[in-house]
Computed example of a mutant assay.
Amino acid sequence: MNINKQQIDKKFEEHIKELGTALFKYIYSLVKHKQLAEDLQQDVLLSAYLAFHSFEERASFKSWIFKIATNRCRDYWRKEKGNQRFWQEGVFDYVSTIEMTIEPEEYILEKYKKEEVLHKIHELPGKYREPLLLFYFHQCTITEISQEFEIPMSTVKTRMRRAKKRLQPKIDM
């Protein structure tokens, strides 16, 4: 039994040495925060280690551990969404009173700028417009947009970057 555990530990360690950097980069691409990515990577490694005995080699180790990483990131986002809702409810009245202290001219100018940006976004082709609207106006994550349109996250990011590039010369702010 002890030899078997040592063999399992060694095999797991070999996989991690091979994929450790790629795993971190993947998690970082999802969360865009170095310390959070490091924490999530540690959580993923611990979960994978504890479940490694049940790993069936029907799929590659890489796809298995990346799936664990995706699920951990989803768990984090769900938790974070709940925390945001809590804080938004608590400060909503305070924010609305701050908005009341803004001069009417400033408020109208800000509102006009937002409407102008929205109008310019609607002039973009659909494949560029939809990700921007979902991300900035409906608070969807890159992952959710990717799943909605059944396209890779990298494609969503590219389309958003290209849309911003197309919008930049049209909006003078």
Rank of each mutant, 00 (worst) to 15 (best):
L30Q: 03
I151C: 01
T97Q: 06
T70A: 06
R74D: 11
F135Q: 12
E89F: 01
W77T: 10
E103S: 10
D75T: 11
E130D: 12
N83S: 11
E144M: 06
A37C: 02
L40N: 00
Y112S: 14
Y107Q: 11
Q41I: 13
E103P: 10
T70L: 08
K67A: 15
M1D: 02
R166D: 15
F24C: 08
A163Q: 00
K79E: 14
K62V: 14
F52R: 10
E148R: 14
P125S: 12
R78P: 00
I151S: 04
E110G: 14
K165G: 01
E116K: 04
T158D: 10
Y28W: 10
K67W: 03
L133Q: 09
Y28L: 08
Q41A: 15
E18F: 09
K111R: 04
L30W: 05
W87V: 14
T101R: 08
G20S: 15
K111T: 06
V156P: 06
E89P: 01
D172R: 07
Q35L: 09
E99H: 08
L109V: 04
Q6E: 14
Q88N: 15
I3A: 06
K10P: 07
T70W: 05
F12V: 00
V156T: 02
K114E: 08
V95C: 00
F52V: 03
V44H: 14
T143M: 11
L45A: 05
K113W: 03
K34W: 09
F24R: 00
D39W: 01
F66T: 08
F149C: 02
R74M: 08
L46R: 15
V31R: 09
A48Q: 01
N83L: 15
E57P: 12
I68C: 11
Y76C: 03
K10Q: 13
F55L: 00
K81I: 09
E38A: 11
V156G: 04
M100A: 14
E56F: 07
V31Q: 15
V31E: 06
H122W: 07
T21M: 07
T101F: 06
P104M: 02
I142C: 07
M160K: 00
H138D: 14
E110A: 10
K164V: 08
E13Y: 15
T70I: 03
G82D: 12
G20C: 15
F61R: 10
K111D: 08
F149A: 03
L109I: 07
I145V: 07
A69V: 03
Q6L: 10
F92N: 12
L133H: 05
Y112Q: 07
Q42R: 14
N71Q: 00
R58D: 13
S146H: 06
A69R: 03
T143W: 13
P125N: 11
R166I: 09
K157Y: 08
F92W: 09
F52D: 12
T155K: 04
F52K: 02
E14T: 08
K111Q: 06
R159S: 07
K17G: 13
I98L: 15
F149E: 03
Q139Y: 13
E80I: 15
Y112T: 06
A37V: 01
R78N: 03
T70Y: 09
L50F: 15
F66K: 11
L40S: 06
